[in-house]
Amino acid sequence: MIRILGLVVLVAAALAAPYFFYPIFLMKALCFALFACAFNLLLGYVGLLSFGHAAFLGTAAYITGHSMKVLGLPPELGILAGTAAAALVGLVFGWLAIRRQGIYFAMITLALSQMIFFYALQAPFTGGEDGIQAIPRGHLLGFIDLTSEIALYHFVLAIFVFGWLVIYRTIHSPFGQVLKAIRENEPRAISLGYRTDHYKLMAFVLSAALSGMAGSTKTLVFQLASLTDVHWHMSGEVVLMTLLGGMGTVFGPVVGAFLVVSIQNYLAQMGSWVTIIQGGIFVVCVLLFRRGIVGEVLALIRKLRERQARTG
């Protein structure tokens, strides 16, 4: 009952939000929330720390930007193209990186994403330092004008909810069950006959595709695809969002993303201090609440329940 009530409140809040907050800010936060959720699928549920997720966000951003501005695709196809491109890059990256673990996995993903960065810097279609600018938002399905920020907001919200549901279902599926087994004890999963590399690769491609979907959507919102999207700072930021909110929880990355985007937006006038503040928050997070915000709250609830069960 409480759960259904909570869901109703959440949906109502999400639908009403653009009338109270700046819609572009909300859309940005939603894009990053999806990005962080996709990243969390890999870190929180397979135990793989990728340090190259910007490559998927950025690749999708460029492909969507190019296909909408130059090829004139409608927004829905532009987003699909970007997502597919990110999935493809994810397949190649995953195939190369999945055999390594821990720091080596992180390093390989970083190296590969740097290759994408330098490609984006040099390739003619990406616009180099300028990026792809003034990308038309177009008409969704031919009749919904996305230049209206309210219409665009609801489209972005729908994409976010879709992506989040895909991740939620993946975690709570037979496949997700195997992923958790691999995270908990990979040698044991192997000894039970699971070819764990295949499962990890599948999770990697899913994560890349959804990160790409976030990147494509972000391009649509800002009408811009730039080097920021493929820069390694972006790969680091998504780690921060996920850890801050709580890795391995379904809502944690969402909270983390909203928090980080808020900090960036409201403290923007402080210039480069923002980075230092972010770094400080990260240090505090690692030192004081390692499970992240949502993770700590869940742990607290569990503890209270246990105490209640013991006394009651």
Partner: peptide, 24 residues
């Protein structure tokens, strides 16, 4: 769930990320 992990491979749905785990 521990025991089910071993059993579920034979169902052939171990890659089905779109299916509910209630099917297990």
């Amino acid at each position: 769930e521990n025991v089910r992990i071993a059993l579920q491979r034979e169902l052939g749905t171990s890659f089905h990320f779109w299916k509910s785990d209630a099917s297990l």
